[in-house]
Computed example of a mutant assay.
Amino acid sequence: MLVGYARVSTTDQDLTVQLERLSQAGCEKVFAEKQSGTTADRDELQRCIEFVREGDVLLVTRLDRLARSVLDLHVMLSALSGKGVGFRCIDQAGVDTTTSHGKLMLGILGSVAEFETDLRRERQREGIAKAKAQGAYKGGKARIDAQRVNEMLADGTNPSAVARALGISRQSVYRLMQPSG
């Protein structure tokens, strides 16, 4: 069975092109999500890896849809290989773990994808440093209402309940707690 996986990084991006390409490639089942490239928080990817069975082939449109680091890529491919599942990229036709040539291409392209991510991160850090030096960088906007956290705590709500109610981590609650006394 051909199984597809599609991903975009943010909720305002569109999955349509990837879904169409995977369907055209013959995928009988497709898992899709709008989530960052880090593998730990991608529920649909985890469901996909649990779903595939021996003899299946997992398809993605591009390698960076599956992994952004060589380590993550190898961990995922090892998990797939251990289940007897192949892997292919539609746009990088040479990437096919069912062939020796494809395995070589996969290693090369995985390294290039990680290199591009590192370059992007480096350029971003340089831009932020320059903006800070010019006094133009104010940081990101606050995502958590610190005043609301402290109001709830003052009303007697415990930190765990505050975290659940606001959809944040307990650590964030503790970090924002105003010192008493």
Rank of each mutant, 00 (worst) to 15 (best):
G82L: 01
K103S: 04
A161S: 07
C48R: 02
T61E: 11
R123E: 10
F31H: 07
R164A: 10
L80C: 04
H101G: 14
T11G: 13
M105V: 12
A165R: 13
L176S: 00
D118A: 15
I49V: 15
R123V: 11
G26H: 08
R123W: 14
S69C: 01
A6K: 07
I144R: 05
L106S: 07
K103V: 05
V173R: 05
S23K: 13
F87S: 04
T39I: 13
L80V: 03
S100P: 08
L71E: 11
A163Y: 00
D91G: 03
R21S: 15
P179V: 04
V85T: 01
E122F: 10
G127N: 04
Q147A: 12
Y5D: 07
S81H: 10
S36R: 10
Y5T: 06
A32T: 12
T10V: 13
I128C: 09
S100M: 07
G55S: 12
S100C: 03
G139E: 10
V60A: 12
L80T: 05
L15R: 02
E20V: 15
N158Q: 11
G55W: 11
A67G: 02
H101W: 09
G127V: 05
R65K: 05
Q124W: 14
G4D: 04
G55T: 11
L153M: 06
G140N: 14
I168V: 02
D56V: 07
K34R: 15
V30Y: 06
A133R: 05
E50Y: 00
V162K: 01
A161Y: 03
G37D: 06
A79D: 12
G86A: 12
G127A: 09
P179S: 09
S9F: 09
S172K: 02
C48V: 03
V162P: 01
S172Q: 09
I49M: 15
R7A: 12
R121W: 11
I168W: 00
T99N: 11
M76R: 04
E28R: 15
V52R: 04
T98C: 03
T38R: 14
D41T: 14
L22D: 03
F51K: 08
A113D: 08
I168A: 00
E151I: 08
H74F: 15
A161W: 00
T98L: 11
G127K: 01
S23W: 03
A32Y: 13
D118I: 14
E151D: 14
K132H: 04
Q124N: 12
P179R: 14
T10F: 11
V3L: 07
R65P: 03
R53C: 04
A129P: 08
R42T: 02
F87A: 06
L15C: 10
